[in-house]
C-alpha cells in the first residue's frame, strides 16, 4: 500500500469509529423509547384511561408536580435573589447545600424527610401536637417533590438574576418606577429565559419523582400514588399496561415542555 492510501485508510477507520460509537450512544438512548412504542398494547389505551386508579394517578401527578413547582417558585425565588444579589457571608456553603438534593439518591431524600417530618421526626413531633401528621399524605408527596425539584429552579434562577444587570433597575427607579413595577417590567423580562428553563427542569424532576415519594409519602392510590408509582405497581401485575402508562407519562411531560418552549422566543 502506498503511504497516501495508508493515510486515507487510517482516516477512514477513524471516521468509522467516530460515527459508530455516536450511533451506538444514540441507539442506547432511543431503544427504550422504541421498545415502549412497540411493546405497548395500544388497543388497551381506552381501557387504561377508564381505570379509576390510572386517572387518579394522572391527576395526582399533575397536581403534585405543579404544586411542587409553585412551592419551589414561592420559596426559591427569594433565596435565588439573595444568593445572586446580597453579600451575605456563607453564600458558598448555602449554594453547596442547595445542590445536595440534586445529587442525593432519592431514597435518601425520602428517609431524610421522614427524619424531619415523620411522626417521631425532628419537626414531626411538634407538628403532631397540633394534630398534623405529614407522612403518607398528599402534602407529603408535594413536599418530597419540592425537595428534589426546587434546587433545579433555584440554581437556574440564580444564574439568570446574576446575569441581569441591576443598572437597568437603577434606570427604572430614577424614571419613577415602584419596586413592583421594576420587578415586572424590568427584572422579569430579563430573567424570563432562565425562569422558564428553571420551571421546566424542576417540573420534569417533580413529575418523575419516585424514590423520595414512595419512602416519605407511601403508595396510596388517590392520595400519594403518582404515575411513576402507579407504573411501578402495574409492572408487577400487568407489565404491558405499565408500558402504556409510561408512554402516557412521557406524553404529558413532552406536552408541558413544548408549552414552555413555545413561551421562549428565540429558542
Amino acid at each position: 500500500m502506498s503511504p497516501g492510501l495508508r493515510a486515507r485508510a487510517r482516516e477512514h477507520s477513524a471516521a468509522i469509529l467516530l460515527y459508530g460509537t455516536a450511533s451506538l450512544s444514540l441507539l442506547l438512548l432511543m431503544l427504550p423509547l422504541v421498545g415502549l412504542a412497540f411493546e405497548s398494547p395500544w388497543r388497551d389505551t381506552g381501557e387504561l384511561l377508564a381505570d379509576p386508579a390510572v386517572r387518579d394517578a394522572l391527576l395526582l401527578s399533575l397536581g403534585v408536580s405543579l404544586a411542587a413547582v409553585a412551592f419551589s417558585l414561592l420559596l426559591g425565588f427569594p433565596l435565588a435573589w439573595l444568593l445572586a444579589r446580597s453579600n451575605l457571608p456563607g453564600r458558598g456553603v448555602v449554594r453547596t447545600l442547595i445542590t445536595l438534593p440534586m445529587v442525593m439518591p432519592p431514597v435518601v431524600a425520602g428517609v431524610g424527610l421522614l427524619a424531619a417530618f415523620g411522626r417521631h421526626g425532628l419537626l414531626g413531633e411538634a407538628l403532631s401536637v397540633f394534630g398534623v401528621t405529614l407522612p403518607f399524605t398528599t402534602l407529603a408527596a408535594v413536599i418530597a417533590a419540592t425537595f428534589v425539584a426546587s434546587p433545579f429552579l433555584i440554581t437556574t434562577l440564580e444564574a439568570g438574576i446574576v446575569q441581569s444587570d441591576r443598572r437597568f433597575e437603577d434606570v427604572a427607579a430614577t424614571l419613577g418606577a415602584s419596586r413592583w413595577r421594576i420587578f415586572h417590567s424590568v427584572v422579569l423580562p430579563a430573567i424570563r429565559p432562565s425562569l422558564l428553563a428553571g420551571i421546566a427542569l424542576s417540573w420534569a424532576r417533580a413529575l418523575g419523582e419516585f424514590g423520595a415519594t414512595i419512602t416519605f409519602a407511601g403508595n396510596l392510590q388517590g392520595r400519594t400514588q403518582t404515575v411513576p408509582l402507579a407504573i411501578y405497581q402495574t409492572l408487577q401485575t400487568r407489565p404491558e399496561h405499565a408500558f402504556l402508562l409510561a408512554i402516557l407519562l412521557l406524553a404529558v411531560s413532552l406536552c408541558v415542555l413544548a408549552l414552555l418552549r413555545a413561551q421562549r422566543p428565540g429558542t
Binding site: 444587570d165 443598572r167 437603577d170 427607579a173 430614577t174 424614571l175 418606577a177 424590568v186 430579563a190
Partner: peptide
C-alpha cells in the same frame, strides 16, 4: 430615587432591551 425630580443618563446608556 423614584420620588426625586432627577433625570439620569447613565454611562453605557442602558436602554431597556425588550
Amino acid at each position: 430615587p423614584r420620588h426625586r425630580p432627577v433625570g439620569v443618563m447613565f454611562q453605557g446608556l442602558w436602554l431597556f432591551p425588550g
